[in-house]
Amino acid sequence: MAISVAHHAQVAYKPQTRTARRWRPSGEALLFLLFVGPNLFFFAVFSFWPIIYSAWLSFHRWDMIAPIKQYVGLDQYRYLLHDDVFHKVLANTAVYTVGAVGGTLILGLLVALLLNQPLRGRDGARAVIFAPSLLSGAAISVVWIYMFDPRFGIIARLLDLVHLSSPSWLTDPAWAMPAVLIVSIWKDLGFATVIFLAGLQAIPRDLYEAAKVDGAGVLWRFRSVTLPMLSPIVFFLGVTTILNTFQSFDIIQVMTKGGPVDATNTLIYYVYQQGFIAFNAGRSSAASLTLFVLMLGITLLQVRYAERRVHYG
């Protein structure tokens, strides 16, 4: 963000420095500042400054009240490097991100393909699929807690019908992550579906007709027409869903509080735990900087490598 802003600024000022000795604001530059200024101001106050401050905090030990923040060098990072819980948290974050992003994208595409067919009740189905993404994550999590209850939840009842016993979704470490993933995918599915649908409808029909004439079957048409034409959508959804998932907090806070025994403790939740339950501002900052670097790295990778494969038709 900051890089591109600086770049634009340079472009805008260059003609000025050539014609006039002394810099004076041209109308264009003022307009530029007018547009960028408010945004930049809020970014600086609410994003850049906190990042810098938490980077600084990560070299200290502080309980968030004491007047003195004790400098500890790289101790907090060293702790994270050797801490079993933090390793587990990283692994959980990977599982959660891959599961939620993969699940949302694949299911979203399948549902979009289905809803793109001329079926009866299609519009109603679209609304139903989209609705969860408008709801508050905390509220739906409360409802899902009841649905997951292994004794009187509706899921247990349904499993009972097919003579299966319900797992202890939220209290069994093996099932807690799947439970959280189900809710997360269910919530984000609608958004992905709608975007995919828009993408599908933008694909010119003649491409399919041409493919048909060339003798391509359904699967072949999907591979050679639909997927390449959808690639900008997949890219867009990939980036946004990954970033969202990395920062997803509400569902975990309400449903599992990171438990049982850290089974659903992800990076963002760990940051919260260390910061606001253990009041360990330094360690929390070190973890949040790790999260920041990870997200930055993934985004760069995506822009670098994934975007090359995107076909802007």
């Binding site: 292994p150 202890s168 209290t171 449903m255």
Partner: peptide, 14 residues
């Protein structure tokens, strides 16, 4: 207590 089957951990985390 849990392994012998007479106790469990609460299913209602809240």
């Amino acid at each position: 207590s849990v392994q012998d089957g007479w106790a469990n951990i609460t299913q209602d985390p809240d």
